[in-house]
């Protein structure tokens, strides 16, 4: 056996030895390490979010004052009414969500023009852990929607070509929008990071809804994964989801402008 073969033999032995178990173990360990690191970073994001709010809260000297449960509830009511008055100065229709009384209303210039009962409310766990006064600070002022994603269009036109003459005239009735049975779901993205979703109560199904859910999930995953790739704690976006009847959800969506103002009351 010459020297070259001897060396090759050594390497094979080493590689063979290593390749059996340790390589697999190392790979597995790396994978677990990645999972753990990203998992910890991801699960830290609500903590970081709350920390930021606390910081803001502490810097607001006005908030450091006499406090009690009864007084807090009065503060919430006062802040809610103030926000509605602020909305009344706008020219467009606004959405007022009263989670406490389970009511969703449309208002224009302070006049309630539409009111529906909220059948079901789902919200991120963070709202239960959050000091109520933090909610007052962060979510009671009118919030501006920065983006919307929905299963239905804002306005749906049917194009009809004018007949050339009376013989070409068709007594075609337009496709009536109310017979379209696509699920009505939409989500508002706010500038302060909150996501507010309105879903139809009736058991929704169909391709449109699946696409909608997939889009939301994908958006969320990409956002988190993007932050993780930069070794950053992902931004936390608390979400509130309400369920109302499909017809009501459609009316609210169609009545609101593209980027409406919304007021929340917890």
């Amino acid at each position: 056996m010459n020297k070259k073969d001897k060396n090759s033999g050594k390497i094979i032995q080493w590689f063979d030895r290593v390749s059996r178990k340790p390589v697999l173990t190392v790979l597995l360990a790396i994978l677990v390490l990645i999972f753990m690191t990203t998992g910890i970073l991801t699960s830290l994001s609500p903590y970081q979010y709350l920390g930021e709010l606390n910081k803001q809260f502490r810097s607001d000297s006005l908030m450091i004052q006499v406090s009690s449960n009864a007084l807090d509830s009065l503060k919430f009511e006062e802040a809610f009414l103030k926000s509605r008055l602020t909305l009344s100065s706008l020219d467009s229709i606004s959405l007022v969500i009263n989670l406490k009384d389970s009511l969703a209303t449309l208002e224009i210039k302070g006049v309630v023009i539409y009111s529906v009962k909220i059948e079901k409310i789902n919200q991120s766990l963070i709202f239960n852990k959050m000091d109520p006064r933090l909610r007052l600070l962060e979510f009671t002022d009118p919030m501006q929607v920065s983006g919307v994603f929905s299963t239905i269009p804002k306005e749906q036109y049917m194009v009809k070509n004018a007949p050339a003459d009376t013989s070409d005239l068709q007594s075609a009735l337009p496709v009536i929008d109310t017979v379209i049975t696509d699920a009505v779901c939409y989500i508002f993205y706010f500038e302060n990071g909150l996501q507010f979703e309105i879903r139809q109560l009736e058991a929704p199904s169909g391709k449109v809804l699946r696409q909608y859910d997939r889009h939301n999930k994908r958006k969320e995953i990409f956002k988190i994964a993007g932050d993780l790739l930069r070794f950053k704690i992902p931004d936390y976006r608390p979400q509130i989801s309400i369920e109302i009847r499909g017809v009501n959800a459609r009316t609210i969506f169609r009545a609101l402008p593209v980027k409406p103002a919304v007021v929340l009351k917890f």
Binding site: T38, G39, T42, S43, L44, S45, P46, Y47, S124, L125, I126, K129, K217, E220, I221, I224, A225, L228, P234, Y236
Partner: peptide, 9 residues
């Protein structure tokens, strides 16, 4: 990941 994030609460 979103579930893990929410679970952090």
């Amino acid at each position: 990941l979103p579930a893990i994030q929410e679970g952090g609460n």
